[in-house]
Design a protein around this nucleic acid. Structure first.
Length: 756
RNA sequence: GGACAAUUAGCUCAGUUGGUUAGAGCGCACGAUUCACAUUCGUGAGGUCACAGGUUCGAGUCCUGUAUUGUCCACCA
């Protein structure tokens, strides 16, 4: 007979194996086809799982999405829908490379010791070794994912589809390559899109420097070697006579002339109303330069990709920007060019979202996607309500973004990712800067033409580390090497370029007919913090490629916070490890604690007490079932006396109320689940099971007011209602009922939802 | 500077077409218990639903404004 307490650890693994054995998660399995034939529900139900990083252990956010999505999927499956939940993992370009480089550093190495193919292979091995972690943990959380349709973002067929999309976009003239300022992180060694830059407020210093007849204010005096002009507001009376003039200024490296231009972007109120224009190191300056480029010299790069000053800066060359700043200020002061120093200045600086080091705006030729037509299409679909967003106002944030999104830089200077299908013909691009690793492991760098005089193309190619082609370089786009005399671009795609195609590439490269059968998918469930990175771009790319929205509903869950509502972080030591909770209190308790009373778009705090409470609930379900089964086995004669003495009319009316309320509860929970109000549905089933079914009905049954058969029927229905949230304990009990021939369906997970 | 949310019991939060006496978990107080479950059961305390107006027969729920907190975005060198 059943234990006195429910031991989650004892049952969970066996139950999961049981589901796998019956292929319960596959819509094409016998058991699910039978179920659908019985219910005759023709709807398809699809969720594409947000692919976790292939080699990351799961955190509580993952547990949240697994809990929510699995509940949705299990409910749909029991409703007889053609249900698939497609799992996968993501190569997570920069994230993974970042982790791997840390590991290299530990071993006293860096990525610059390896050619790109070797490095790629090393990361591949590393990811492969760790990649089962996430998958195993997702299974431990009870995910009823369709493992027969599993995909990895670097699977051959997926990569091929992603490249096809790029080629198609190029044909549609949505791709261009240009040299403009990018957000470059010298520490990470790659450019980022605007979305990957954070802003941090900081105390800063504003330096007032003499520039010929002017004094101007700047926070970055070290960029002055890259000045190409001075700017004033066109209506600033103080400076009218200088506009259009070339002004001679005394500088640290001698004297030189700068043109004074008039541009409305200058705020006459700020500083002295004069601005130096340093186009290659400031976004505003670059734009100003472009507006006036007919009368100005070309921009000068004074900071390189390592964050150090270039040879343009003479004696300051090779110094890191911040070091150079101190030195420049000191020298300006001794030359009498420093007028004033304002140390009480606050401004925002851009920092890398990954490593929090300052972002340098630097000029780099990159590939961009023109987003205008894509965002317009998404806005239209939003207006037509073909896609709706659940999540506390985040739909408005999405619209706001779509209206002002800038073109998307998709080039990344990292190895771990899908390499751009761009090929440079060697003979036409001798000026290309190339870096490669020689057989003796030494690193060689220079213009391709010069390198070819000493090294063979084959030697260069096999040790290739990095190519930097000028913006005018000729290239062709091809998935395969177009000929002997070509070198492939070393940049890779932004991870989000491939993951934005995830809904359709997973379905197009799966079983025959899957795309027609499951696209557009039903729900995209993910955390709100990747709304712009991922959801927005999936909408853009999905509509572009298929003409249809990739999903009709977006369900955004909030962040999980600690008991005090604080964000979880390693440094605070308040991180909840879902795997530990699962082992300690059971997966069902973990899932229920996360879902109950949660609301889309809003953060939720959880504490040890919540998990404990839900573990107690698991045990309550167990014991109520245990009691009902025990009672059934016990000789009816034991209660004979009571049974004979009960008032039949009271019994009849109690039983009627019981049946009615059971139906009403079922309807309410079904309605809430259909409306994706999982937090409410979970709360309802919790309360009704414990405080109505157990506290009242089972007590009545003890007294003989409710028949054995009826109470068993109530239990069966409650197990079904509870199953989406707490799959393990309910299935374990179901198996017990099945053994005793109290139910006919062999597996709860593939049994019909009540009233369907 | 702009946008989006949140504000309900000591704490953390539900409460979605406006409708009896506003709910849960944890915590608290008192009590019970060989009879499924101490991971239990019973009883109880605790709320002018941020504030101020408005709409309505009726407002935690809708509207306007204010305050506070949080998030996102932008930004002046």
């Amino acid at each position: 007979m059943l234990d006195k307490q429910y031991q989650a650890q004892v049952h969970e693994k066996n139950i999961y194996q049981l589901w796998l054995k019956h292929d319960c998660f596959n819509p094409d399995s016998e058991i699910n086809q039978k179920l659908r034939a019985k219910i005759k529900n023709n709807d398809a139900f699809t969720i594409i799982m947000p692919p976790p990083n292939a080699n990351d252990p799961l955190h509580v956010g993952h547990a949240m999405f697994v809990s929510l999505e699995d509940s949705m999927v299990r409910f749909a499956r029991m409703q007889g829908k053609d249900t698939t939940w497609i799992p996968g993992t993501d190569h997570a370009g920069i994230e993974t490379q970042f982790v791997f480089e840390k590991k290299l550093k530990k071993d006293g190495q860096s990525r610059f010791n390896f050619d790109r193919d070797t490095l790629y292979q090393m990361i591949w091995e590393y990811v492969k070794t760790n990649s089962d972690i996430a998958v195993d943990q997702i299974k431990q959380l009870g995910a009823s994912a369709d493992w027969s349709r599993f995909k990895f973002t670097l699977d051959k067929d997926i990569v091929d589809s992603v490249l096809n999309t790029f080629i198609q976009m190029n044909q549609d003239q949505l791709i261009y390559r240009t040299n403009r300022l990018v957000n470059y992180c010298p520490k990470c060694g790659t450019a980022f899109s605007n979305l990957e830059v954070n802003h941090q407020e900081q105390d800063s210093t504003l330096y007032y420097i003499k520039y010929g007849p002017f004094v101007l204010a700047t926070t970055r005096p070290e960029t002055k070697f890259g000045d190409t002009a001075l700017a004033v507001h066109p209506e600033d009376k103080r400076y009218q006579k200088y506009i259009g003039q070339d002004i001679e200024i005394e500088d640290l490296l001698g004297t030189r002339k700068l043109r004074v231009i008039a541009d409305t972007f200058v705020d006459p109120e700020f500083g002295t109303g004069v601005v130096k224009i340093t186009p290659y190191h400031d976004f505003n300056d670059f734009e100003a330069w472009q507006r006036h480029k007919d009368e100005l010299p070309p921009p000068i790069q004074t900071i390189d990709f390592n964050g150090k000053l270039t040879t343009i800066a003479g004696p300051y060359a090779g110094l890191k920007a911040l070091v150079a700043r101190e030195q420049v200020v000191k020298d300006l002061e001794s030359k009498g060019l420093l007028v004033k120093v304002d140390k009480n200045y606050h401004n925002n600086i851009s920092v890398c979202y990954r490593c929090s080091n300052p972002i340098e705006p630097l000029p780099l030729p990159q590939f961009y996607i023109k987003v205008k037509s894509l965002t317009q299409a998404v806005l239209k679909k939003l207006d037509q309500k073909e896609v709706k967003v659940l999540g506390a106002g985040h739909d408005k944030i999405l619209r706001h973004w779509l209206k002002q999104l800038e073109d998307w830089n998709i080039s990344r200077q990292i190895v771990w990712g899908i390499r751009l299908p761009i090929w440079y013909e060697v003979d036409k691009n001798h000026d290309m800067m190339v870096t490669f690793i020689k057989a003796d492991k030494s690193r060689v760098s220079g213009p391709l033409g010069e390198l070819l005089q000493i090294h063979s193309l084959q030697e260069i190619e096999s040790g290739l580390q990095n190519i930097s082609a000028s913006v005018t370089a000729e290239y062709i786009i091809s998935k395969t090497k177009p000929g002997e005399n070509y070198l492939q671009e070393t940049d890779t795609f932004d991870t989000w370029f491939s993951s934005s195609q995830w809904p359709f590439v997973t379905l197009m490269n799966n079983q025959e007919g899957d795309f027609q059968r499951f696209y557009p998918t039903t729900i995209m469930e993910t955390a709100y913090d990747i709304l712009m990175f991922w959801v927005m771009r999936m909408l853009m790319m999905g509509i572009y490629k298929t003409g249809q929205v990739p999903f009709s509903t977006v369900y955004l869950h909030g962040l999980i916070r600690d008991s005090k509502g604080q964000k979880m972080s390693k440094s605070k030591g308040n991180v909840v490890n879902p795997m530990e909770i699962s082992e300690k209190y059971g997966t069902d308790a973990l899932r229920m604690a996360l879902i109950i009373r949660s609301s889309p778009g809003l953060d939720k705090s959880v504490s040890e007490g919540d998990f404990k409470a839900m573990r107690n609930f698991t045990n309550k379900i167990w014991n109520a079932s245990r009691f009902i089964l025990l009672n059934k086995e016990a000789a009816v004669g034991e209660n004979k006396e009571t049974l004979e003495n009960i008032d039949e009319s009271i019994k009849k009316s109690k039983e009627l109320v019981f049946k009615e309320k059971l139906t009403q509860i079922t309807q309410e929970i079904t309605r809430n689940l259909n409306a994706l109000q999982l937090g409410i549905a979970a709360d309802t089933v919790y309360n009704e099971f414990w405080h109505w079914f157990c506290d009242e009905c089972i007590e009545d049954a003890k007294k003989g007011f409710i028949d054995q058969e009826l109470i068993i029927n109530g239990l069966v229905i409650f197990l079904k209602l509870l199953h989406p949230f707490m799959p393990f304990v309910t299935e374990a009990l179901w198996q017990e009922l099945y053994q005793q021939n109290l139910v006919s369906d062999s597996i709860l997970a593939s049994s019909p939802w009540p009233l369907s």
